[in-house]
Amino acid sequence: MAEPVVNLKRYLLTRNLIIGWVTCVLLAAFLLNIPKINILEHTARNLYFHVPMWFTMMAAVFVSAYHSFKVLKTGDLVEDIRALQAARVGAFFGVLGLLTGIVWSKFTWYVGTDIWWNMDPRQYMVSLQLLIYGAYFVLRSALDDPRKRSRIAAVYNLFAATTTPFLLYVIPRQMESLHPGAEGNPAFSEITDPLMRLVFYPAIIGFIGIFWIVYTQRVRISLLKYRVTQDSEM
């Protein structure tokens, strides 16, 4: 196993930059004025949190798939740990995106009804990605030998990743959506205030940065644990 070399100075600098960036984004998200929209009112601020979760999960899916590919190419266990931790953190962000979306729709469009789960394409896509990661974790626990586990889990991760793009094509044609840019709904950039977009795009970068911090720290802890216990699952 090739121990990764980290330039500590650069790492700390990047980390502090991200923390400063996210702090600014959070302050702007809560303090700046937003236009009054009828049903949304102040819940529109959730845009800064709900949507970046989805972007962050997509980034995590890419990172995880990339490292799974590297596992097959090099057979390095570090890559396996990276793929696993990216999947775990990505699944966490997916759950957050799902929860913020459900709560948001419940207290705006569905206030006064019993609807918690609506038939929204994006909701289905996130829950399917979470199911795939659930299956990925279950498969990992069914394999004993670390080397075999790294390879077979990588195969499943990549194989499942080939089917998800079809969802983007299939599901939106069959269901209606609350989201902008979907069938019949105006595109995001047309209906969103320029000032809100000024906070929204940095928020995406900030949350992806948070993903990167959590992910690298988890990989680091996992490597330390692996050195002690020879178990890459922890």
Partner: peptide
């Protein structure tokens, strides 16, 4: 994949169903 797993059990449906959704819908 499941033939390589040590404790197989009902592993196949768990792995299979999330992948099949695009196919199933169409």
């Amino acid at each position: 994949i499941i033939a390589r797993a040590t404790n197989r059990g009902p592993l196949l449906p768990v792995l299979l169903f999330p992948m099949l959704v695009p196919l199933l819908l169409s």
